[in-house]
């Protein structure tokens, strides 16, 4: 464990807590993409299949349970909670996220480190996580008026993978034979997808005006 990875995990944790806070307290998920939340639930479900077979640390297992629990409960809230589900703008959140799942699955079947069931699904979760934010970014472009909590959620979610990139650089420099192109490229693509959001987020923060993404 290094400071970059810890910062990344804490930022990631903060992003899901911000979202859960928003949905649980104001009973609203306006501006939140259910498609992205469903993709993240799939990412965690396929990433943490080894939770029962391999144990690294209490921290590792605890965080996996938190991410699994939070992502599935957010999907539950947005689909089935009587008050929250009414605030979900179904008409705007129309990204065909299944068109992201299949290519990631095919790519994982083609490019992986080992051709085993767990490894292919784990690689699939890496590719899917890289693009899982797309429905949310599209929704933000459409809804334009981004409330603070949703903006913070996307900002923290984008920041966590950025910290992970620093973690991979650190591990590459300090651990011999630590080379994982698949993880690195997927993580880099993921962070780059946030680039324009980050630009507009900092602009709005600097000029102290509401976050507006160009149409």
């Amino acid at each position: 464990m290094n400071i970059f990875r810890l910062a990344g995990d804490m930022t990631h944790l903060a992003s899901v807590l911000v979202l859960l806070l928003k949905i649980h307290t104001i009973k609203s998920c306006a501006g939140v993409s259910l498609k992205t939340q469903e993709l993240y639930a799939i990412v965690f479900a396929t990433r943490y299949l080894d939770i029962f077979t391999s144990f690294y640390s209490i921290y590792n297992t605890l965080m996996k349970l938190i991410f699994l629990g939070s992502s599935f409960s957010i999907v539950w809230y947005m689909r089935y909670h009587k008050t929250v589900r009414r605030t979900y703008d179904r008409e705007q959140d129309t990204f065909r996220h299944w068109f992201l799942v299949l290519p990631c699955l095919l790519l994982a079947l083609l490019i992986h480190e080992k051709f085993t069931f767990l490894e292919v699904l784990w690689t699939f979760s890496l590719y899917l996580e890289a693009v899982a934010i797309l429905p949310q970014l599209v929704l933000l472009q459409r809804t334009r008026n981004i409330d603070n909590l949703t903006g913070q959620y996307v900002f923290l979610l984008g920041g966590y993978r950025g910290f992970y990139i620093l973690n991979w650089i650190y591990r590459y420099l300090t651990e011999p034979h630590f080379v994982h192109w698949i993880t690195w490229i997927a993580g880099l693509v993921q962070t780059l997808l946030y680039a324009d959001f980050f630009y507009y987020y900092f602009q709005s923060w600097k000029n102290n005006k509401k976050l507006q993404l160009p149409a």
Binding site: H12, R47, N60
Partner: peptide
Amino acid sequence: PKDRSTKDEL
């Protein structure tokens, strides 16, 4: 065994 992969990461 602590394998050298990124599996110990979240």
